[in-house]
Design a protein around this nucleic acid. Structure first.
Lengths: 128, 128
DNA sequence: ACGTTGCTCCTACAAGTGTAGTAGATATCA
DNA sequence: TGATATCTACTACACTTGTAGGAGCAACGT
């Protein structure tokens, strides 16, 4: 299982690790918005499960507390998420983009920026 | 619950109804690729659950078989799917598009087509 | 009218997910 | 060093999702 499928809550835990770096369970818990913050042991369970999925690992121990760090990158996890979505559209991204455009979420500026990105990337890869 | 969250299998059942129109459980089941086709009762369970979620409804009865039809549109369901994904990116679509571009899934043509779509839509909406 | 086939409805169950309590080990502070 | 605060490890449990079996009724062909 190279890239495990992560659930919503698991992703929130990962997000805490990605943004604040290696942390204890307590720190991860406190990274949740005060409003609607799961119990300490709930976060702990997520951490254990993520460990089982090899998405995070124990880095060291400070006092009696374990410090965890992400073992998979935010980029990889996000790519997985997107690929899962695309599978619903037969793997084709156009319908997704079309939806974003139709619902006004993607503006002309956004698209033009994407275009620039494509041009830049193709320039970097072709010249060999 | 205006737009229920649909699972992978449920979406496949919906897809059958969207593409073939009102159908019986048997017809839905047979719409699955022969390879890896769930048991009749498995499909039936999904149909019942979708009914519970108000995503489909009984249209009529032919013989002793019920005929079901979709009660929510493919568009609405897909939009829901995309919105759920976006929520992981703070509601912003740019990271998603960037990912699609970076992994080569979105080509220059795709982007330019999206641009055309935006221009066409803005022409339709602005003139008032 | 009867058997065979097909459909409905109900029930079951394992894996995954969200949520959290408890017991016991460990630090820390006075 | 004893009390208090913290952590860990384990356990529990309800709900969701995928998967399907069984009992019984209905329809169709002969």
């Amino acid at each position: 299982m190279a890239l495990p499928r992560l659930t919503k809550l698991e992703l929130q835990v990962m997000e805490a690790l990605w943004s604040r770096g290696a942390s204890s369970v307590r720190e991860i818990q406190e990274a949740f918005p005060e409003k609607d913050r799961p119990a300490y042991t709930t976060v702990q369970t997520m951490v254990y499960r993520l460990e089982g999925k090899k998405a995070i690992r124990r880095l060291k121990k400070i006092g009696n507390a374990h410090i965890f760090e992400a073992a998979i990158s935010r980029n990889a996890a996000q790519r997985r998420l997107i690929d899962d979505l695309l599978s619903f559209f037969g793997g084709s991204p156009q319908p997704v983009v079309a939806h974003l455009v139709e619902t006004g979420k993607l503006t002309l500026d956004d698209v033009q920026e994407a275009e620039q990105l494509i041009r830049k990337l193709s320039k970097k890869e072709k010249p060999r």
